Amino acid sequence: MTQQTTQYAARQRLLDRTALVTGSTSNIGRSIAQALAAEGAHVVVSGRNAQRGEEVVADIRERGGKADFVAADLDGSPAASHDLAAAATEALGGRIDILVNNAGIYSPPVTLADTDSETFDRYYAVNVKAPYFLTQAVAPRMVADGGGAIINLGSWVARLGTPLGGLYASTKGALETLTRAWAADLGPQGVRVNAVSPGVIRPPELDPAVDFAGAMTRGTPAGDAGHPDAIGAAVVYLASDDARFVHGTVLDVDGGRAGVAVIAN
């Protein structure tokens, strides 16, 4: 099966809104930033690599969108997250309407026996503490401004056990739990909080000859890895008024991996 870019008609559902997307200099984060900008949002692209970030910004602008780059190394410290929130708010003219907590680390996948304290702490710092303190900084201002939308990035491995990657899976399980808790806390104050749970997503720049998905997608309805644009489209939906009645949900965009078995593996 040949994987192609997901195509959908932009309807300017996010016109005049602002968005911060962490880890948006490549792959899934890049597609999210591009999709939000295509729907009219002014997007802050954020990450550690300034060159790649500026390339994403240039691409968005060439398509007629609005974007700026803000460098950030989200190491899990409150200061790093709060500094990004302040810089992004300034770049966006004083408000953040949409926050996408996408930045995270996966490599190297480690087993239970191989995990040391430093690796454990680094995974939780980047994948849990960083979005926690970024949300802490952004959410009160959203409430004061009359509302907003926060979208976290989970993962299919948070609910379907695999032999490797348990540490990473546990961080994504934590973020999905925080999604529900924050929805309960912030929803009554006008801020919707939801999550997207991607399945196996193939980097677009990867050589097509490389068997990227392998057994991970065998037996699923989709039968193959997904394209990052599918995640971008899901985030646009959750950020838009189309999802005005959606709170605390985790939207699976995984080709059926976590919930459906066509062929038992």
Score class of each variant (00 low, 15 high):
residue 1 M to Q: 13
residue 4 Q to D: 13
residue 6 T to F: 15
residue 7 Q to F: 12
residue 8 Y to C: 01
residue 11 R to M: 14
residue 15 L to C: 08
residue 19 A to N: 02
residue 20 L to K: 02
residue 20 L to D: 00
residue 22 T to N: 00
residue 24 S to R: 01
residue 25 T to C: 12
residue 26 S to V: 11
residue 30 R to S: 12
residue 31 S to V: 03
residue 34 Q to L: 15
residue 37 A to D: 06
residue 38 A to P: 02
residue 41 A to F: 10
residue 44 V to G: 00
residue 46 S to E: 01
residue 46 S to K: 03
residue 48 R to P: 00
residue 49 N to R: 15
residue 50 A to E: 15
residue 50 A to Q: 14
residue 51 Q to L: 12
residue 51 Q to F: 10
residue 54 E to I: 03
residue 56 V to E: 02
residue 58 A to R: 13
residue 66 K to V: 07
residue 68 D to L: 09
residue 78 P to I: 10
residue 79 A to H: 12
residue 85 A to P: 03
residue 85 A to W: 08
residue 86 A to W: 05
residue 87 A to M: 08
residue 89 T to S: 14
residue 89 T to W: 10
residue 91 A to N: 02
residue 95 R to T: 13
residue 103 A to C: 11
residue 103 A to K: 00
residue 106 Y to P: 01
residue 108 P to D: 06
residue 113 A to G: 07
residue 115 T to R: 07
residue 117 S to P: 03
residue 117 S to Y: 13
residue 118 E to H: 12
residue 121 D to S: 14
residue 125 A to Y: 04
residue 125 A to D: 15
residue 125 A to M: 09
residue 127 N to C: 05
residue 129 K to E: 02
residue 129 K to L: 13
residue 131 P to Q: 02
residue 132 Y to M: 11
residue 132 Y to P: 00
residue 134 L to I: 01
residue 134 L to R: 01
residue 139 A to C: 10
residue 140 P to N: 09
residue 144 A to H: 10
residue 146 G to A: 09
residue 148 G to H: 04
residue 149 A to D: 04
residue 155 S to H: 01
residue 156 W to T: 08
residue 160 L to N: 11
residue 163 P to W: 09
residue 165 G to I: 07
residue 168 Y to C: 02
residue 169 A to E: 02
residue 173 G to T: 05
residue 173 G to N: 08
residue 175 L to V: 15
residue 180 R to Y: 08
residue 181 A to H: 13
residue 182 W to N: 05
residue 184 A to E: 10
residue 188 P to A: 11
residue 188 P to E: 08
residue 189 Q to N: 07
residue 189 Q to A: 11
residue 193 V to Q: 04
residue 193 V to K: 01
residue 196 V to C: 02
residue 197 S to Y: 05
residue 198 P to K: 02
residue 202 R to S: 03
residue 203 P to K: 08
residue 204 P to G: 06
residue 205 E to D: 14
residue 205 E to V: 11
residue 207 D to I: 08
residue 212 F to H: 06
residue 212 F to L: 06
residue 213 A to E: 14
residue 214 G to A: 10
residue 216 M to G: 01
residue 218 R to C: 02
residue 218 R to H: 11
residue 222 A to Y: 14
residue 224 D to S: 14
residue 229 D to I: 00
residue 232 G to T: 07
residue 233 A to P: 02
residue 233 A to K: 13
residue 234 A to G: 01
residue 237 Y to M: 09
residue 246 V to H: 04
residue 249 T to R: 11
residue 250 V to K: 00
residue 257 R to S: 11
residue 258 A to D: 05
residue 260 V to E: 10
residue 260 V to K: 11
residue 261 A to V: 15
residue 262 V to H: 07
residue 265 N to H: 15
